[in-house]
Design a protein around this nucleic acid. Structure first.
Lengths: 352, 352
DNA sequence: ATGAAAGCGCTAACAA
DNA sequence: TTGTTAGCGCTTTCAT
């Protein structure tokens, strides 16, 4: 007879003071009922099947022992883990922190957990998110990922909800998107309406759907305005590189009167560049951001930018995943975005 | 004979094409070996116990089936989950994002996972982190938490490593701290050395160890300098409230020549306040931050601030937890911090 | 209203 | 070198 490491808890006296964490059997013994009854009561599905008196006893015993169910065991038994993986490009960017908050909120409401996987950029995308997450997962939500990074995620065989990603081509079970194109249109409309005609686009040098749309939508909007011109300057997604890119843009001749940035981070760099060139924002040059990070209002002047409902995106993503897991149809909304006019934009200088 | 939901996979023909995810038994069947052999081979502890040829066969079978071990089952069997909970007050603050990055990096190196629990501030601290995390955990790392929030964490019965928290009183298995006091001393020394004598402290109105130390250490350093005086203005941890607090501080008579902020966020608010009052930074008033967030260099002028090795803190915390879990002694370092002098500080205006 | 028993997928001790 | 077997803690069916 093969004896395992732990030689069977059978001989334990009913005092129940077993060595490790108390199990449902400990609770059962203490309440003098069966394990099944404990499960029923603590699982909240006892009504009409267990007498209220017994239920009370069980709850007391659980309380007294400090019982907490073993989630591994439950997951194993149930075949589901009530846990989702949220994959984001970076956590330091507070858009993603807010997406996470939204997803977590909805998850918690449905007794789900969210584990985060900040896809390592520097280390290369070859890392296995499923292995690294080290959690048993029911589904995956991925935000703003590059196409090749998404490929790895689809391998998992788990339901995949994509956020802020090209809805075509990749068959996720659902895609929650932002109306990025409209956001950029609002930016262009705002600046053109103020009278700007020489525009610079400080464009994020990142190959994702969201930035592609920004570039395309902006170009289109400007093309529709006679006499307006647009120059594009690429930049890494960092203040430092944006400073360089914006400096190039602002030292062009003739100088643009407005710099449209793909991200608030870039806009911060643009503001720095302007100030270092002795230009005032917004009197000499207008600057716009995108995302409405907390950074946008930390700057002076505050950034005119496009507010993305990050929390709502995360929430909608989680809801979509829950729908799919429950066998329901997931709806894949496109969430509206809104221009927020603040201090960094104004009419162009009179003698442009 | 009680029949469960799934009526035993026994009758499955050896083709192995069972409905769900392949299990180690499927792999075993396909490789014509026992489940034990599969476990040995895939667990990497086969050398000298399984022939290389068989091992190869097993790996091929696993590959072909796309086998991925069921982590719930493994955790259940092993009694450990290789997962740690990281509790932070907020994710939008990029100090904590970096702590998470550090912890995750070390975790990954040891085949551990990290699940994040951003302790809900608004919703009240009553929420159960263990329940919400919905993961089976081996230990907990908590950063910069208020004492009462920590109490709940100690209930879990899991090893608890604290970061940036009062080392006295609460018996965590280890505490990783920053030399916050020294950081504040460096700030004070820097400003006093530049000639500042009227100082304002924009103090975070948050009851945690880290901010207590900042206040105390600053007060002490200033007290040591004859003729130097310090006024304290409390502020919530937001740019918006800092703007108000700094405005109060800067409209006092006589006006302070330097504003020392507990956090870069507050410093950003102070800079806004200064500018709105028509004061130049640093010519009219010096401003210092704390933490060296990415925000510090997004501003113009860039903030003089104290760099906290957030990544190292997270890494050290995870190492300490791993040590404890392995039965080793955990060492609890105090990590040094360093003043970074940038553009937001200068000598006080000549006629103060 | 309650209990007995089976089994989720895995690992490890032991037998062969 | 490989296979057999027990059992981690839980939920659920079926029997009582």
């Amino acid at each position: 007879m093969a004896s395992n490491r732990r030689p069977g808890t059978a001989e334990q006296p009913r005092t129940g003071t077993s060595s490790g964490r108390p199990t449902s059997r400990d609770v059962a013994r203490r309440a003098s009922v069966s394990q099944a009854t404990v499960s029923l009561v603590l699982g909240g599905k006892w009504e009409g099947r267990v007498s209220p008196r017994t239920a009370e006893t069980v709850r007391d015993a659980a309380q007294a022992l400090g019982y907490r169910p073993n989630l591994s065991a439950r997951s194993l038994r149930l075949g589901r883990t009530r846990t989702a993986l949220l994959v984001v490009p970076a956590l330091t960017h507070d858009y993603f922190a807010r997406v996470h908050a939204g997803a977590s909120r909805i998850a918690a409401e449905h007794d789900f957990g969210v584990v985060l996987y900040p896809s390592p950029e520097g280390i290369g995308p070859a890392v296995d998110p499923f292995g690294s997450a080290r959690a048993a997962l029911d589904g995956v939500i991925a935000s703003s990922m590059a196409p090749d990074a998404l490929a790895a995620l689809r391998e998992g065989g788990l339901p995949l909800v994509m956020l802020d990603t090209d809805p075509e081509g990749d068959r996720a079970v659902a895609t929650v998107n932002l109306d990025i194109a409209d956001g950029m249109r609002q930016v262009a409309g705002h600046l053109l309406g103020l009278g700007h005609r020489r525009l610079a686009h400080l464009a994020a040098a990142v190959d994702t759907w969201t930035f592609g749309v920004r570039a395309h939508s902006l170009a289109q909007a400007v093309a529709l305005e006679p006499g307006a011109e647009l120059r594009t300057e690429p930049s890494d997604l960092s203040v430092e590189d944006a400073l360089r890119g914006a400096t190039r843009a602002l030292t062009a001749d003739p100088r643009p009167t407005a710099v449209i940035c793909d991200d608030d981070l870039l806009a911060a760099g643009a503001c720095k560049a302007a100030r270092r060139l002795g230009l005032r924002v917004p009197e000499d040059v207008s600057v716009t951001g995108f995302d409405d990070l907390s950074l946008a209002t930390a700057l002076e002047p505050e950034l005119t930018t496009v507010r993305l409902p990050a929390e709502a995106v995360g929430a909608a993503g989680m809801r979509a995943l829950l729908d799919v897991l429950a066998g329901r149809e997931a709806n894949a909304p496109v969430l509206p975005v809104q221009l927020v006019r603040r201090g960094s934009t104004a009419e162009p200088p009179s003698e442009s």
